[in-house]
Design a binder for these strands. Structure first.
Lengths: 343, 343
DNA sequence: CTGTTAGCGCGTTCAA
DNA sequence: TTGAACGCGCTAACAG
């Protein structure tokens, strides 16, 4: 391993000078700089990041903590963060939290031991006080996909209410007047927002959504293991209630597909018999048949933005306060919603 | 930040003693150890990994380099590696290579600057010489999903030939006698192996696969951007050749789904009219309809194994040479293959 | 069993 | 414009 001393010796200068050349800072004579630069390249010298982190008390590290990286939604967060980091000299370090608040704290702490000051945290279940105390210690901590009013300027999140409204509006424009919702009932606030958005959209059109048209289950959250089973139960439940609807609004794409499958298994056609709309716009939404009409969640862009925000918070003087970072979803029209002629 | 000196001062001992307690090594008096331990916990002391890495010349880091983390297959590699790392004190650092050999080398080098000695590399296009010279410098470099004969003991890979054979065998048992293959034609050796496997399977049954039943395209590899378009073209091509077959063997699940969609768009039913079989067993395979019969690729287990292997190579004395690490695929039976009664 | 010393590679003073 | 000296937090070698 070639060190700064090696370069200095060969170049006939002091380590300090090499250091100045490497960092492009400080006054160095023109000729001297060129010579040192040349030798650096010849010897293939690369600064030791550990030594740097030690002396400067900051590692150029972006930490990512998400529930499970093999899920495309979270993989996209990692992808976006890496994309943004690559523009700088920062590296990405990651940990899965498995949605366990304790593991989450473990993950964060172990990242901190590495001098990681920049972190993107996807936490749905960590309690606000814990997160607040973490944020006080970690200057570059940013929350993705969660809104904490007391730390609004660190939150990069999506307007789920708008997403719900978008779904209701779109269905209305396609001629639908009676809709149903299949979602979860957990601590996760996203689905509450999405449902409220749907209700708002309908109210604005002078329509209402009967409570019987909403299917929720107490014992499940978005990370339920057997999604298909859950959806099959939910669809059966909905049909057994004997309420009327022409479209189902799903909590997300995964559920939408589970619902389409359940309907398929019951011999019902989507969208001919029943329309279905999703949320997230995962890859799978364009790969299933019928291709899923859904609400696009710009997660890669959000992760890139979150990473840049985090970097800005630690690198620049100006505080990024007084505003939050709210992204807007959009609708992606595909084939799972039928156009109904309004009489 | 609380340092080893702080703990030493409060405990009334020397930093070395604290160090011994922390690492659980060396001789420390029973009472002394207990006291130091208590103070460590009270003060919330955590060793600075950068200082450790600096002095020991090795960081406890597992680096992962894959083409693109937002794809579930690669996300699963990261997931598996993290899962294995979490059992130790190692952290995971990751980079996307975007299938670009230059970016790949960049990624590896920047990982090395962090003292990362353990790396899991998913490289399909890096040339053998480059990889060999990398391997000489990086003691814990492991290749996943690639076989390099000269570095066999560092390769954790899948028996693609067996996978192809498995597909052919299964189809044969379901009564199929005439099959078609839709795949790619790039430098990637996987598809060649898989096709050879299919041929082997058929040969063993006394059957042959006419070349006209194989559709490949020169200008595309597994990372083709518009998979659906590619599959639609491929299916049209196959049908226009007017060859006879009852089942299509796809290169992977993504293609299989593209093929099913193309058939669907042409008004053909899977599996009633044509059977389809995939490869990989991604999440999507069980979520599409008909659910996809496919060859299971145990990628998470392989990534875990690769990580442990890498750790073993750097931590333990015994060399892990003289054998390679070949995983076997299995078949997962779902709904996309029709059972044909053999007359 | 415990403490002292030295040094990992680097950035940051402060003198020259 | 350049160099020498110091210390970041820790471990290893040695001394006691």
């Amino acid at each position: 391993m070639v060190t700064i001393k090696d370069v200095a010796r060969v170049a006939g200068v002091s380590p300090s000078t090499v250091s100045r050349v490497v960092r492009g800072q400080g006054k160095v004579g023109k000729k001297c700089r060129a010579k040192v630069q040349k030798i650096i390249e010849e010897m293939g010298y690369r600064p030791n990041t550990n030594a740097r982190a030690l002396v400067s008390q900051r590692a150029e590290l972006v930490g990512i903590v998400t529930p499970a990286l093999h899920k495309p939604f979270f993989g996209s967060i990692a992808f976006g963060a890496e994309k943004a980091s690559r523009l700088t000299s920062y590296q990405v370090m990651m940990r899965n939290s498995q949605n366990d608040p304790d593991l989450e704290v473990d993950a964060i702490n172990s990242l901190r031991e590495h001098g990681c000051e920049n972190m993107i945290l996807h936490s749905k279940f960590g309690d606000a006080d814990t997160l607040k105390s973490l944020a006080d210690k970690i200057p570059g901590l940013v929350f993705i996909n969660r809104f904490l009013p007391e730390m609004a300027s660190r939150c990069v999140w999506l307007d789920n209410v708008s997403g719900g409204r978008l779904a209701a509006d779109y269905l209305f424009k396609q001629g639908h007047r009676e809709m149903a919702i299949v979602s979860f009932n957990s601590n996760n606030e996203d689905q509450i927002d999405r449902i409220n958005g749907v209700k708002q959209g309908l109210t604005a059109r002078g329509l209402t959504l009967p409570e019987a048209n909403i299917v929720l289950r107490e014992d499940a959250g978005p990370d339920v293991n057997n999604m298909q089973e859950y959806c099959t139960h939910a669809v059966n439940e909905l049909l057994s209630r004997d309420v009327s609807f022409t479209a189902i609004i799903a909590y997300n794409d995964e559920m939408a597909i589970g619902i389409m499958n359940a309907l398929f298994d019951l011999g019902k056609n989507v969208p001919e018999d029943i329309s279905v709309i999703g949320f997230d716009d995962l890859d799978i939404a364009q790969k299933c048949r019928p291709a899923l009409t859904t609400i696009h969640y710009p997660i890669v862009e959000m992760a890139e933005y979150a990473t840049k925000l985090s970097l800005q918070m630690t690198l620049e003087k100006e505080e990024v306060i007084g505003r939050t970072h709210l992204f807007m979803p959009t609708i992606v029209e595909r084939k799972s919603v039928k156009k109904i002629d309004v009489v």
